[in-house]
Amino acid sequence: MDPSEVEFLAEKEMVTIIPNFSLDKVYLIGGELGPFNPGLPVDVPLWLAINLKQRQKCRIVPPEWMDVEKLEVIREQERKEDTFTPIPSPYYMELTKLLLNHASDNIPKADEIRTLVKDTWDTRIAKLRLSADSFVSQQEVHAKLDNLTLMEINTIGTFFTDSLNNLFKIRANLQPRGESTMSQEY
């Protein structure tokens, strides 16, 4: 899947905004939103939050975990453990990127947050590469990937599954017995 499509899915996440306009409830196909009152926080999907922000109709309240202290703890834990640690949001990377790009003036210490999230991401991707390597070398056929986010899976996704498929094809040809069961490609 394309990273932009993962981002598209991330845009469905709810964030809190503080609008500066008033509007009654909006009945969308996917559920109702509002009512919007100036100064009162309200939850909206990210796509709407960013649009309103671009038109300067609201202030975005950063998610609870988007905080330097909390992210430092997460980063340290991620570096300490060998496995993937639970992450505060399944779309942490996308949310950070979108919010920092469009609403950095609403987020305190935006630059530090950017660095922290990037560090965590790098650590996790390094782990992912390592485990992918051992997956291949041990000729495994099943892996459990808890705590991995969609964006992380998609970073290696297509490349990794394609290589596995090709490896499998090569190995299947080495073992003449399985002919009838495998799907042959011409």
């Binding site: 056929v141 892996a143 073992q175």
Partner: peptide, 21 residues
């Protein structure tokens, strides 16, 4: 199994877990 040396085995899928298979 992928090769002859390995044996087939069973896994449980817990709700909410993620897998590569």
């Amino acid at each position: 199994p992928e090769t002859d040396e390995q044996r087939e085995y069973a896994v449980d899928f817990e709700e909410g877990s993620q897998h590569l298979i």
